[in-house]
């Protein structure tokens, strides 16, 4: 539980003149489940979206694997592959069916990697003609078809896990909200992320369907996934979280274990918030 995955330091974000985040610092450790609470407009969604640079932070730093994601020069696409994100409105690709939705990103990224390696090998081969001590080639065991097959199998395994294999060839418009959200979660999982960010995953769902999504998230939590969850589900926060943080007015007002957080709130605004919500 000691390894820090994401280290956020003094994160600030302005939208024009409006200051939404005013310096947030937090260490997110491996396998930790953090639930972010706060009144609407407090900046909790913005905070989450800053973590994978969906919104570019105005200042501050987000250290992930020794690199600062807030820096423009860092290849953010590479890091986003390992930071899964689940949205409030699911955002499944409407022009792709379910299985394509899950496979698309891994297949594209892996084939690109493969092509890059092949190109590199070609140049190494050419330059080896003029070298005495030959440079070794990059090992390539995959083919494009192989990558597709591998990812297809993986996608079906993931679908099986949530019990929706029969929906594999269906387009998202025919699915219910709960099904969409669960597919969105496993689409993120297909990239084998190290951190998962959930941006109000149950807020756009019918009350009936909230349960199935939360169930899947609890499953993930038990598997030891590092999770940052923005939600209004207090029950989930109590049950699953290691740490609950309360953001108001762009700063972290309180940060505590769920037990302490709910039974013994210290901040006045938090007390007010909890009295209204619970």
């Amino acid at each position: 539980m000691e390894e820090v995955v994401l280290k956020v330091e003094n994160l600030c974000k302005d939208f024009g003149k409006e200051k939404v985040l005013k310096g947030i610092s937090i260490d997110i450790k491996k396998a930790e489940k953090i639930v972010v609470l706060g009144p609407s407009g407090s900046g909790k969604s913005t905070f989450l979206r800053c973590l994978n640079c969906m919104e570019d932070p105005t200042s501050g730093s987000i250290i992930y694997e020794g690199e600062d994601l807030a820096n423009f020069k860092v290849d953010i696409n590479k890091h986003r592959q390992h930071i899964g994100m689940v949205f409030q409105h699911f955002n499944l690709f409407n022009n792709k069916n379910v299985i394509q939705n899950i496979m698309l990103a891994p297949v594209l990224i892996q084939t690109r990697e493969l092509r890059k390696n092949r190109r590199k090998n070609f140049f190494i081969k050419v330059s080896n003609l003029f070298r005495k001590n030959k440079k070794p080639l990059i090992e390539i065991n995959d083919t494009v078809a192989g990558i597709k097959k591998k990812n297809e199998e993986k996608a079906y395994a993931l679908l099986k896990r949530i019990g929706l294999e029969d929906k594999a060839l269906v387009y998202p418009s025919t699915l219910s909200g709960g099904q969409k959200q669960r597919i969105a979660i496993i689409r993120a999982l297909a990239m084998e992320p190290k951190v998962m960010l959930f941006d109000e995953p149950t807020s756009a769902l019918d009350p009936e369907m909230v349960g199935e999504v939360l169930e899947l998230m609890k499953d993930l939590a038990e598997e030891g996934m590092t999770m940052v969850v923005v939600t209004h589900e207090m029950g989930f926060a109590r049950e699953v979280a290691n740490r609950v943080i309360f953001i108001d007015d762009g700063v972290i007002k309180e940060e505590n274990s769920p037990k302490e957080f709910f039974s013994n709130p210290k901040d006045a605004r938090l007390k007010d918030f909890l009295s209204k919500v619970l």
Partner: peptide, 30 residues
């Protein structure tokens, strides 16, 4: 086309042009 489509593509680690050509443009043309 819903902004979320681009965001979803980007959040999976795809580049701007890849997401544009594979996800957004087909829906826009429709």
């Amino acid at each position: 086309v819903d902004k979320g489509q681009m965001e979803a593509g980007r959040s999976l680690g795809l580049g701007y042009w890849t997401t544009m050509v594979k996800i957004v443009l087909p829906q826009a043309i429709k």
